[in-house]
Simulated assay, not measured.
Amino acid sequence: MTPFHFTAGTLPLLVSIPHAGTQLTPEVDAGLSDAARGLPDTDWHISLLYDFVRDLGASVLIGHYSRFVIDLNRPPDNQPLYSTATTGLYPETLFDGTPTFAAGKTPDAATRQEYLETIWQPYHQQIQQELARLKAQHGYALLFDAHSIASVIPRLFDGQLPDVNVGTNDGASCSPAVTDAIKAVCSAQTRYSWVVNGRFKGGYITRAYGQPAQGVQAVQLELAQRNYMDETPPFTWQQARATQLQTLLKPLIQAFLQAGKPV
């Protein structure tokens, strides 16, 4: 399987979806623990939830492989992004701390290096190429990194996660105007709880490519999955909840597009 699916759009916006993939390599498929077999840490249905951005004219990049093969939102040197509990470039544990692989079944270093070269690098090369194209065409580029996660994971955060978790690398990945516009959209509604730069400040993609001074603004959005799907297997899509959530996502994207324009 190819590492990703990419569709070029007409707007200065690239929507990246790195964690929706479920494809496994033979080595990972053979080695997963029973707890990991159902791919519980997948960003389930995110591609479907954000399908509306295609009609708007956004470019869309979707990773095909499971994060259990290699995590596209971690740095290639596997340095931790958070001082609190997290998972790495090659996740050894699930979000709840359970081992990802059965004893003695972890892919070896050479195999994982191949994943870096044939899965991780092509995805990031596509991001770089598309951002360059958008800058050449529009004079600037916007990157929206779309994620979701179960709303209760004690190992990663206390209590229940807010519904909408915006990450801007503590303001470094986008302009204050973009942050203010997103906050305004969130503040204008009361159905969903929200936070900016809370537990999730943005992963490697947001931090690496969000460079406002160079004409690239990046925002990560981590959604609590309870608002559009069932958080327990088989992780069923819930259309009514998803449709309601899109009434917030659509103005958030529009606000990003409007506020991200150069002054």
Rank of each mutant, 00 (worst) to 15 (best):
G63M: 07
R133T: 04
K201V: 09
Q79F: 08
A181I: 01
E222L: 04
A136P: 01
T22Y: 13
Q225H: 11
I17R: 05
V216I: 10
T243E: 15
L39I: 05
G38P: 12
L221Q: 06
T84R: 10
R112I: 05
A30F: 09
D108K: 05
L89N: 02
R155F: 04
N197G: 05
Q137S: 14
T7K: 11
L32T: 01
V263N: 12
D34H: 09
L81P: 00
T236H: 14
H64E: 10
A259D: 03
Q220N: 07
E130P: 00
F200I: 03
Q189D: 08
P122F: 03
P18Q: 03
E114D: 13
K183N: 13
L134G: 00
D180H: 13
T190V: 04
E114L: 15
G97I: 08
F157R: 08
K261F: 05
R226H: 14
A35G: 06
Y228C: 01
P251A: 09
F157L: 07
Y209C: 01
P12G: 03
K183Y: 10
Y90R: 10
L156P: 06
V69M: 07
T100E: 03
G202L: 07
A240Y: 12
G97L: 03
L116S: 02
S33A: 11
G57Q: 05
P162M: 11
T25L: 03
A255R: 00
A36R: 00
E114A: 15
L245M: 14
P18E: 03
A172E: 15
